[in-house]
Design a binder for these strands. Structure first.
Lengths: 226, 226
DNA sequence: GACCGCAGTCAACACCATGTCGAGTCGAAT
DNA sequence: ATTCGACTCGACATGGTGTTGACTGCGGTC
């Protein structure tokens, strides 16, 4: 097996086993090396030895800090998803003020976050196929976003801005999935992809038409139909 | 490197090196073994030895038939995409007759094809991250479908059934990407996914609203706006 | 009917990455 | 000064991949 050895149940820190001292910089050195190497070649082509040497330690010592190569990536992914979660901010609460502007803001922020760490995101997408731990973490993150979007759609329907239709959860899943795949193609640059400069607007358009049946949804107006 | 060794330029058959004789059944035995094993465990957990033994030959002999494990999967993928291409049939030409029904038919046929070979599709999605050859083939296939959908959207706009909006190509990319990712989640069953029974209708709804701004696009009527 | 060539076969080998073990070093606390 | 635990690495075991070289058997050829 290649899966990470983190004791599945609780994983307070995904990195070192126990206490903390000088080894902290070694840990961050490994992380930094990983991010640097990821910028120049695919994750699969980076060996544990590369990571260790890059951090100035031997291969066995690497195992003192991380249980596997994948665990390093997992730590990197943790950071990115945290940043993405933070980026969402209070956008959802302000949706009714100006739906188009705020949905756009939401998509644009995610785009910026992922784009800022494209190497990590791309690497994760690549190992998700073979690593159950990455798959699990990503599923968890996605589930949070799906729920948030689902709630937003339901709120928009409740205030009469969006028509009924698909179950909000199914719609949220479809839209989030689309974003994920489209971003992946855009960042990876292989296969048909939307130009990076246009991608936010393309995604936004599909979101708006799917949710509101129009690209210019009605602003505020707390009542029912005008 | 783990990439397939097919002489990149022209690859008439992806399998055996040269002539043909009794070894034909060995080749198909390998393919059959791969498909069988794929049904019970992930591609990464299948060794070349497993494939060879399953086909009743030794590991070195495997290399007589295929240059690598990935090449076997590639051959399997070839079949599936061929079947999917065939499944599209003449649906595109009949779109105007009844857009909703025909778009649905199109999505449903792809769903049936992929669902019928989910193990292969899933395995491909998993190695796409690490294998350039699979990535290239998939990109090629996707490009064909994107072009077809793009043309269909443009035709619907030309006959006045669909409003202008996003560049048809960008829209086609986004919609195809969505389908791919949503199917993957549904078949893999990890992470947020649409129930298999609903997935066609969910996708259809997003396609229709994105293309027509309504889930009930106008039938035939060769003229402009009614 | 001896000879060639070639599809087909495999034991044995070279290689490389992963993960583990046991024997250390060194600084802080007792 | 001794002990303890954080930290380190040389050396090894394991397991998968890809290659080599020798062998078999069969269809054609002079």
């Amino acid at each position: 097996m290649t899966t990470a050895r983190t004791p599945t149940g609780a994983a307070p820190t995904r990195g070192r086993r126990a206490g903390r001292s000088t080894g902290d910089d070694r840990e961050t050195a490994i992380l930094a090396t990983a991010e640097r190497l990821l910028a120049e070649r695919p994750f699969a082509d980076i060996s544990i030895d590369d990571l260790a040497r890059g951090a100035g330690i031997s291969r066995p010592t690497f195992y003192f800090y991380f249980p596997s190569k994948d665990a390093v990536l997992l730590t990197l992914l943790d950071r990115v998803t945290e940043e993405a979660d933070a980026a969402a901010g209070d956008v959802f609460e302000r949706l009714a003020e100006d739906p188009r502007a705020h949905w756009r803001e939401l998509i644009a922020r995610f785009h910026a976050t992922f784009g800022g760490h494209r190497d990590v995101v791309l690497a994760c997408a690549q190992v998700r196929g073979t690593n159950a731990e990455v798959r699990r973490l990503w599923a968890e993150v996605l589930e949070r976003w799906v729920r948030a979007v689902q709630a937003a759609i339901e709120a928009e329907r409740a205030r009469g801005a969006a028509p009924d239709g698909l179950p909000a959860r199914d719609l949220a899943i479809a839209l989030n999935s689309m974003n994920e795949r489209v971003w992946y193609a855009t960042f990876a640059g292989d296969g048909p992809a939307v130009a990076e400069r246009d991608v936010v607007d393309v995604l936004l358009d599909v979101w708006l038409t799917a949710i509101y049946r129009t690209t210019t949804p009605p602003v505020t107006t707390s009542g029912g139909t005008p």
